[in-house]
């Protein structure tokens, strides 16, 4: 459909040691980095510098296309802009005040909040990008399976992944047919036509789901699926996890002191 949905194409960018790691190690590492980053007080600027140093090092190792990475990271900026818009009205207690133009002032605490939102949002999206660009979606699901995420959940996710292609392709065909018939959605009342598209998408997907279920039953499906075993935790995974855990712990201890 569009470039944003890169995961559907199952293309992996670049190749490197990070790509080959066991998905379980990568999920733990990058989730850990995001969560530890999101709970760090924003005033510890050096801590964020170190988080980004880790991420930049990993990006370098995995040789991802920088331009693509940066455009995706920029997608988070509109959210930050919304927070920024409210800052002049938001005189949270005290601190120095800074004059912007026309007597609009921003407090120091307000600026800290803006920094907090900006840095953590970028940190989060960057580490998720690193994870998904070095790990194919089936690998991710296998990794979640290995981490004891309930099997119903991972099975639904993997089904959803498979059928997303089919449904998006169906939607693309319908869209092309609409355009061929000169459809131009412009206003809210044109939404009704979008409703028709979604209706037939739903009917087709649900009946497909039923057909798939019948087909699976006829092949002996009893509600369970054979699990694929992930590569396993070896030396590279141990090194990767130890490095991440050690540096995150060190940084958080530094912040607390």
């Amino acid at each position: 459909m569009s470039g944003a949905h890169h995961f559907l194409t199952d293309t992996r960018f670049g190749a490197g040691p990070i790509h080959r790691l066991d998905p379980r190690a990568k999920i733990l590492g990058f989730f850990g980095l995001t969560l530890v980053g999101a709970t760090t007080p924003p005033t510890a600027i050096w801590a964020f510098a170190l988080y980004f140093a880790i991420l930049v090092f990993l990006v370098g190792l995995s040789r991802l296309p920088l331009r693509f990475l940066l455009t995706r990271v920029a997608a988070v900026l509109p959210f930050v802009a919304v927070v920024a818009v409210f800052l002049p009205f938001f005189h949270r207690g005290g601190g120095r005040e800074f004059d912007l133009i026309l007597g609009v002032t921003v407090t120091e605490a307000g600026l800290v909040m803006l920094w907090n939102v900006l840095v953590k949002a970028i940190l989060g999206i960057l580490s998720m990008m690193l994870l998904t660009l070095t790990t194919s979606f089936p690998e991710l699901v296998a990794g979640l399976d290995g981490l004891r995420v309930p099997r119903v959940f991972t099975l639904i996710v993997s089904f959803m992944y498979r059928y997303s292609f089919v449904l998006l392709e169906e939607h693309r065909r319908m869209r092309r047919a609409m355009e061929a018939r000169n459809h131009k959605g412009r206003w809210l009342w044109d939404t009704r036509i979008v409703g028709h598209v979604i209706s037939s998408l739903f009917m087709r997907s649900y009946t497909r789901g039923e057909r798939v279920y019948v087909a699976m039953t006829s092949r002996g499906y009893d509600g369970t699926m054979p699990a694929a075993s992930p590569p396993g935790i070896h030396a590279p995974e141990a090194v990767f996890l130890t490095l991440i855990v050690a540096s995150l712990t060190a940084i958080r201890i530094g912040v607390a002191l």
Partner: peptide, 12 residues
Amino acid sequence: RTVPLLGVTAAF
């Protein structure tokens, strides 16, 4: 039926 039906509906 949970997995196939909900999986496809989630895809929808």
